[in-house]
């Protein structure tokens, strides 16, 4: 197999349709990202996440011809991951409830800065507060903030992933931030 690591996702989709083996490059490229994303969406063990990942990638493979070239491939695969995860939760009757993973603290620090909370000496404490506030958010708000802050997706990408109109995305983000701000204010933190 040639080295395809420099190919774009879209090129790999095209190539995978001709050569199954190349789909493996796409899997390797998204395995870790999706694994973190799923973990942030709900409490699952490593084995469940692996099973779920396999199902997601199989579904992606089966639907490769349905990939809309006007979308980013990452948005499309995240959408499938999101939908499959939600189906998995429903089947297992698991309430989506996100969890922090080792790379979260840095993101939370960025969020703290967004909420005008960050102070050099208290970054860690602020991040904990933010994480707690995030945990308390209803699913529809939390998943959207996860995509924005942890997965670094733009409004348009979030719209494509969650299959929501862009206006709804921006409204939900605004409301989610307000809820977090209210929560922080209730803890005595001044929100700028």
């Amino acid at each position: 197999m040639d080295n395809h690591t420099l190919d774009t996702d879209e090129e790999l989709v095209r190539l995978s349709l001709r050569d199954k083996q190349l789909f493996g490059v796409l899997v390797a490229r998204y395995e870790h990202k999706l694994s973190s994303y799923i973990y942030r969406l709900g409490k699952l063990g490593q084995e469940d996440i692996e099973d779920l990942l396999q199902e997601i990638f199989l579904k992606v493979y089966q639907n490769l011809n349905g990939f809309d070239q006007s979308l980013k491939f990452s948005s499309w695969i995240y959408r499938i991951a999101h939908n499959e995860t939600m189906v998995f939760f429903r089947r297992r009757r698991i309430r989506p409830h996100g969890h922090l993973i080792p790379d979260s603290e840095e993101v939370l620090a960025q969020m703290a800065s967004e909420f005008n909370l960050a102070r050099d000496t208290e970054v860690h404490h602020d991040a904990e507060l933010l994480a707690a506030a995030l945990e308390k958010l209803p699913e529809e708000y939390r998943e959207i903030l996860v995509l924005q802050f942890f997965e670094h997706k733009s409004y348009d990408e979030i719209s494509d992933i969650l299959a929501l109109p862009p206006g709804t995305v921006s409204t939900r983000i605004r409301r989610a931030k307000k809820r977090i701000a209210d929560d922080l204010r209730a803890h005595g933190y001044v929100y700028g």
Binding site: K20, Q21, F23, G24, V27, A28, E31, L53, F57, L58
Partner: peptide
């Protein structure tokens, strides 16, 4: 790896 498992499943089931 996940990649290998997925490819195996694709091959085995002739997906």
């Amino acid at each position: 790896t996940i990649s290998e498992k997925v490819l195996n499943r694709i091959m085995d089931a002739k997906t």
